[in-house]
Structures are given as C-alpha cells and as structure tokens.
C-alpha cells in the first residue's frame, strides 16, 4: 500500500517536473478494418495514417518522435519440431509447443527499434520480435525462453519465410514531424481472425502515447463456406465431396463414351 502510494507520488512529481510528458496524443486511421480473403486473394497491403497531437507545438521540434506499430494476429498453438538422423534417415525427434503465439506478427518502425529506446524499455513494452513473449509449454509449466533458444529462433524464422512474422525498420514514414504513415503487408497465407494494431509513440527513448485499433481478416464467399463446412460438419462435407467426385466420374464416362 505504501509502495503504491509512493509510486503515485513519484509519478506526479515526474509529471510536474516535465509538463510535456503526457501532452502528446495519437490519432490513427486504418485504411481497411476488414480484409476479405477470396479465391483470388494474393495478399493485401493496409495503410495506417497517424498524427501526433501536441498541445504545445513549440515543443515538437525539440522532441525526437519515433513510432512503432505492432500488428498481431489471432493466437495459435504450434509445435516446432527438429529432425535428427536416426538409423540413417531424418526423423522428427525433439519438439516444443508454443502456446498463445500470434499467428501473424509485424513490427513496423521508422528506424531500428534498438535506436528508439533502451533495451530495458523495449523488453518491458515488448517492442520488436526479439522482445515479444512467445510462451512455451515446458512440462506442466508455461514460460518464455531466452531469445536465442534454437526452437524459438526456428519458430520465428519459419514464420518469417512466408512473411507471417516480419520486422520492418522502414515500415513507418514520417510525412511531416507529426504526421506518419505505416504500411502493413498481409501475405497470401495470412491467417484469418481478429488482429490488433498497436501504435506506440516514443519521444526521446520513452513511450509517451499509445493507440489501439483492430482489424479482421475473413474468408468470404465460397472459401468461407467450404472452410466452415469442412470444420463444422466434417461428415456431411465428406459425403458431399465424395458425391461430387462420383458425379464428375460419371459425367466423364458419359461425355467420353466411345462405344
């Protein structure tokens, strides 16, 4: 209790000392809140515009503003497996289960995150893929591991290859000292679900403002119908697919009848 009160006091003191501390506000707008995956979907690029609202414009020039945008896809559980040579052939042996890892993760910034804030701040705020918590199931417990853990590194690398995890240190562009633009690339393999877009404003190495918005990636039309049917009504979907196969086979035998 006393510690809590003390923290509040320190905070108030801090605010009083530097009045510009919490004066900034972030205003953002996403080009599209609903990405539709259709049969011709080959990926998409969303644009996020943002403005830094500063009550006292004379301070802007003195503040070094940096923006980090973290886009996070729906959570998933995934197993990372490692092959080893057993009796001359390559077999999956060891594996790690990642629980609650985002299916998509993009960290966009206007410069390398290490130059934006200190390592402590980055870790606390989970800025950058290296600092993002990827909890693993270790026996009955769940915990994060060191960032150079080979399974974690492999997981990030394998998700990065199709562009599902990415870090772009030039992904945010400042159009003016207070106006910025970020482009969020969504590859063709983008997982469907709810996404969160988290925009953090740093000034001189400290986080000063934060803004959250959401977007949704949905399968629409025929794709959604098929995927839903397969997942929810497996047996009926199977019967319908088998019937389709039989119909095609019968049709072919009628069309190509030679005798």
């Amino acid at each position: 209790m006393t510690r809590c009160a003390l923290t509040v006091l320190v905070l108030i003191a801090g605010l009083a000392g530097t009045p510009a501390m919490a004066a900034e506000q972030l205003i953002t707008s996403l080009s599209n809140h609903r990405v539709r995956v259709t049969s011709s979907f080959i990926g998409a690029e969303l644009v996020l515009f943002g403005a830094i609202d500063e009550e006292r414009p004379e301070l802007i020039a003195r503040r070094g503003y940096d923006i980090v945008v973290t886009v996070r896809g729906p959570p998933m559980a995934a197993r990372t497996r490692r092959k080893e040579r057993v009796l001359g052939i390559w077999v999956n042996t060891e594996s790690r289960l990642f629980v609650n890892a985002p299916a998509y993760l993009a960290v966009l910034s206007n410069k390398p995150v290490e130059q934006i804030a200190s390592a402590d701040v980055l870790r606390r705020e989970q800025v950058g893929i290296d600092n993002y918590l990827l909890p693993q199931q270790i026996g009955p417990d769940i915990g994060d591991v060191v960032r150079d853990d080979p399974f974690r590194a492999a997981f990030v690398r394998l998700r990065s290859e199709p562009g599902l995890y990415r870090e772009d240190t030039a992904g945010v562009t400042f159009l003016s000292p207070t106006l910025f633009r970020a482009s969020i690339p969504l590859p063709a393999e983008v997982p469907i679900g709810n996404y969160s877009v988290d925009v953090k404003l740093f000034a001189n190495g400290q986080q000063v403002a934060r803004n959250n918005s959401a977007l949704e990636v949905v399968k629409v039309g025929f794709e959604q119908f098929v995927a839903n049917a397969a997942q929810r009504h497996g047996i009926w979907y199977g019967l319908a697919t088998a019937a389709m196969a039989l119909l095609t086979g019968w049709f072919a035998s009628v069309v190509f009848r030679r005798d």
Binding site: T80, R82, G88
Partner: peptide, 20 residues
C-alpha cells in the same frame, strides 16, 4: 528425401488457431 540432410531441420505444425 529421407537420407539427404534436409534444408531445414525445423518445421512447424499448427495445432489450433483461434480462427472464428
């Protein structure tokens, strides 16, 4: 394919997603 050292020793299998 079974004998030659694979390009990537690691692979991922997604167990479940929170897809709606």
């Amino acid at each position: 394919q079974l004998i030659v050292t694979p390009d990537d020793l690691y692979s991922i299998r997604i167990i479940e997603t929170a897809a709606p």
